[in-house]
Every structure is written in C-alpha cells, then in structure tokens.
Design a protein around this nucleic acid. Sequence first.
DNA 1: TTCATATTTGAACACACACTCTAATTTGAA
DNA 2: TTCAAATTAGAGTGTGTGTTCAAATATGAA
Lengths: 186, 186
Amino acid sequence: MRYKAGRETRDKILSATRSLIAKLGLEGTTIKGICEAAGVLPGSFYNLFDSKEQVIITVVRQAIDAVDPDPEHLGTDTLADLVDAYIEFIVEQGDLARVYVRIAVSGTKDNSDLRGRMLRHHEGRVSRFAEAIAREHPELSDALATQRAETLVSSLNGIAVHRVLDADFDVALHARSLVHMTLSSA
Amino acid sequence: MRYKAGRETRDKILSATRSLIAKLGLEGTTIKGICEAAGVLPGSFYNLFDSKEQVIITVVRQAIDAVDPDPEHLGTDTLADLVDAYIEFIVEQGDLARVYVRIAVSGTKDNSDLRGRMLRHHEGRVSRFAEAIAREHPELSDALATQRAETLVSSLNGIAVHRVLDADFDVALHARSLVHMTLSSA
DNA sequence: TTCATATTTGAACACACACTCTAATTTGAA
DNA sequence: TTCAAATTAGAGTGTGTGTTCAAATATGAA
C-alpha cells in the first residue's frame, strides 16, 4: 500500500463492504459482491486484504467507533445528550448503524474477537449512561443506576434493530419515550 | 404426509434441526447435517419440506407458539403474561430466539416473503401487547397504548439481542423493569 | 389382495463461495 | 531514465452448499 492507487482501491473496497453489510448482512456479503461494487478484481482485493474476515473486522471497527462520537468522556453529558447522539447516529449514519446492528445480532460464530469488542464497547456505553443517570438522580445507588443504564442501552439497541426492519419507525419518538420512562419511574 | 412413516420422519427432522441450531447456530446448520442427525436421506427431506428455509421457520414458529400464554387469542392475557412468555422463550430457547431475531433482521436478499412474514408477526405481537396495556390502563388512548407497545416490544427484542452477546445477561430482570416502567409512567 | 400413492434411496447437479496463481502493467524513488 | 516493487488482470481451484431425480420400496384404504 505504498502507491496512491493502492490506497484508493482500499477505500473503494471498504466503502463497498460497508454498504453491502448494511444492505445484506454479514452472510450476504461476498468477496465477489464486494469486488463488483468496488469495481475491482479478486486479485486486487487479495493484494490488499488477507481475507474476507479482515475487511469485515475493519468495517465493523469503524461502525463501533462511530456510535460514540465523544470518546473524550468529559463527564458533562446528560442522559438526553447521550440518547440524542445515538438517535442521530442511527438516523444520519444509516450504513454504519446498520452494520452495527447486524453485528450485534449476528452470532459472530467463529470470530470471538468481534464478540469481545462488541461487549467491551457495550460496557463502556453502559457506564457512561449510568454516570449520566446518577448525575441526574443522585438518590439512586450506583448499582441501581447501572441496572437502569443496562436496560436502557439494550432497549435502545432494540429500537435500532427495528429501524432496520422498518425504515419508517420513529426512532426519536421511541428512544425519548424510553428516557422519559427511565427517569420518571425512579 | 399421509402415512405414519412420513409423520415420524418429519418429527425426526424437526428435532434434529432444533438441536443443530442450538449447537451450531443458523450458519452451521446444513441440510446434510440435519439429514445425518435425523438418520434420513436428502430425498426424504425434500419429500417433506420444500427448502431449508421452511424447516427453520417451522422450528422457530413452533418454539414461539409453545410459549404463547393465550394461543386462542381470547384476550385474557395480561401484559405480565406476555412478557413472561417472552422471557421464557428467550431464556429457555435462547438459540431459537437468536435465529428468530436474526431472520427478522437479515437482508433476505431474494425472499422478501420471509421478511413480510416477520413484519406481520411483529405487528401481531405489538397489537396483542397494546390490547393488554389498554386493558390494564383504560385511560390511555388506543394510539398511545399502541405506541407504548411498540416501544416495549422493540426494547424487549433489544434485550434478547444482548442476551446473545452476554449469556449472563439477566433477561427477566430487565424485561420486568421495562414493564414496570411502561405501566408506571402512564 | 390390489394398487395408487406416499415414502425412501442415493447418486448427481448446478452453483456460489473464499481464495490462489502467473503474467502483465503501473508506480515513483533514486 | 531505470528498475524493483506495488498493483492489477482474470482465469482457475477446491470445497461445500441446497436441491433434484428416477428408480425402488413401503403403506394402507378399498
């Protein structure tokens, strides 16, 4: 990957992979499909990537990173901020959001690396949500705030999943409803 | 399927499919594997089932039906009943639950029939949840009850998804927490 | 018992998949 | 300009998949 051509080809492949996973899921995404969509031949693909798995991991990493737009973790965000950011991610970053959902749902059979990565990511999100909840509801114990956060984050993912099925699904409405429920039933 | 032999073969195939999905997941489950586990040859399989897809749908459907608290649809089920049934389905039939979610979200490249079936099923679930909510909270408008039901069902699916990633995830705790939130913030 | 039909047999088919290989072409630092 | 290395071309490999088929056999209503 020392020449410009190689870098451009790499980008085309990654972009094609992203939209294919978004549209077809992990199983439906094939090397042939990727190559066609990217306007590239298998030889070029395998010159830049070792395997199908490798491209997919690369794309998934991008998707996971994109979920959390504020890795600085300043500790100033409210629960509503966090949820709004998630809503925006789902609605605006369609392809990446779909990749994220498909990975969450797929068994990730052999690739336990993906599974671990996803779990770690999830835990990080839960603790940020828990901190925000604790900040707004100091009377809650840490354990209870964490439990609430776990319920909320999983539920939000469920809403994202449904959005993949039904493009008209009102993500913002349901996500905010969840937040309201989470905070009001304290 | 008029002879006893046929019915028995069908049972063997369904049972083999169930345990293969549990052991190997959706991808690892092949016709060859099913036939070997069931002690049956491909010809017999295709005499009774049209496709691999059909067996899998049958198995998943059976699992869902087996847990329905009100199969006759008499309108006697409470929201707690419905959620408990869902919890049981996820916890006891985890692998099938995963397949269920997976099919629902999968791209279904050619067969959009499957996707439609899943969407209809989801709508049916939402309306049963909505009816139960309306029964317990007559002061809510139908639209609001439906909206609550949509949030709840999607959220429950999110919890099921997370259970795939983390086997220790306490499905019952979070599901009941959701119900409590749904009903208490009315 | 008869016999239409349900069921089983087991090889074979067509195809899609991830991946490889060799030769040609292009790149850009020296 | 030179030239080693990066990139592309594109046919080809091997394997596993879901599915089909014609022939043989088993079933049970009449």
